[in-house]
């Protein structure tokens, strides 16, 4: 039984490598200074999908991402690693979406994709760390869910067996498909890009990227390119009231940059004398010992 798998992936600012210019003077985030990357746990999710594809002949892996036009990179990246295709959901109507409005838009796009056996996504994205979108998409589609997956152990007879990695241990659970699975960072890393697939897909473009390319006077490449799916809110029949800011019950009241109160500190070097004095002081005032 071949599987139709949808992988949800997000392009995120690389918040793990925040440089000095990442924050603007007014305390807001300077997104332009942060490199945009494939959300790390979504790569773990993609790997789980690709392993099932390797194992079960005829299976397909379709990526779905929502974001600005440049998020088409996410689909290309997935294709380079072995996915079969993908869709970019992009529309100004989605701007300012909280997790509920995001999951609403994604679930409409999944309905448009149609048939599937399995939806896999990363547990959470590093820009928000909420871990909400996966379960909310599942709820909106009326699907069951398995979160915190470390390994999809088997798929057989319409059932999936998954090892979950929890705070204090592991759980092996079995669920009926179709189902949504979110994958932990503790799962195996994603395979690297495949050179042949890079050749095959490096010119794959969305309709609007193709358009921009054609418009460019010095367009270098005129060869037929694979077209990546690109959908607007209207394309997926999304109700505008449930998208973006207006579909978001949570509002950001205030944003502050983080400033810690600096203390007056005493600086020591690593000489024996200074360290012994410190230790003796800590012992004398009963901080240690």
């Amino acid at each position: 039984m071949s599987l139709k798998i949808i992988v949800l992936a997000k392009q995120v600012p690389d918040t793990r490598n925040v440089g000095k210019d990442a924050m603007k003077e007014d305390g807001t985030v300077n997104r332009a200074a942060l490199p945009a990357i494939f959300n790390p746990e979504d790569l773990n999710a993609l790997e789980q999908a690709l392993r099932l594809k390797d194992e079960i002949p005829g299976s397909t892996v379709t990526l779905l991402t929502m974001g600005p036009p440049r998020a088409a990179d996410i689909i290309r990246e997935g294709l380079f690693r072995g996915a079969d295709g993908g869709y970019l959901l992009t529309d100004r109507a989605f701007a300012g979406a909280d997790t509920l409005a995001t999951s609403y838009a994604l679930h409409e796009a999944i309905k448009k994709i149609g048939q599937f056996d399995l939806i896999i996504s990363g547990r959470q994205a590093i820009d928000g760390d909420t871990a909400q979108v996966g379960p909310q998409v599942a709820e909106k589609l009326g699907l069951s869910q398995i979160t915190y997956a470390e390994e999809i152990q088997s798929v057989a007879n319409g059932k999936i067996t998954v090892k979950r990695r929890l705070e204090h241990g592991v759980e092996i659970v079995e669920g009926k498909m179709p189902i949504l699975v979110t994958v932990n960072g503790s799962a195996p890393d994603c395979r690297p890009r495949n050179a042949k697939l890079i050749q095959k897909y490096k010119y794959a473009k969305t309709a609007s990227e193709q358009q921009a390319n054609d418009d460019a006077a010095n367009s270098r490449s005129t060869r037929a390119n694979a077209i990546l799916g690109e959908w607007s809110a209207t394309d997926v029949n999304a109700d505008p009231k449930q998208c973006g800011l207006s579909g978001s019950p949570t509002k950001v009241k205030k944003i502050e940059s983080v400033v810690f109160q600096a203390k007056e500190s005493k600086t020591l070097d690593s000489s024996d004398q200074q360290i012994e004095e410190l230790i003796v002081e800590l012992i004398t005032n009963h901080t240690i010992g």
Partner: peptide, 9 residues
């Protein structure tokens, strides 16, 4: 949010 660089209410 944003890897701890901002605090949002």
């Amino acid at each position: 949010a944003f890897g701890g660089n901002i605090v949002a209410t």
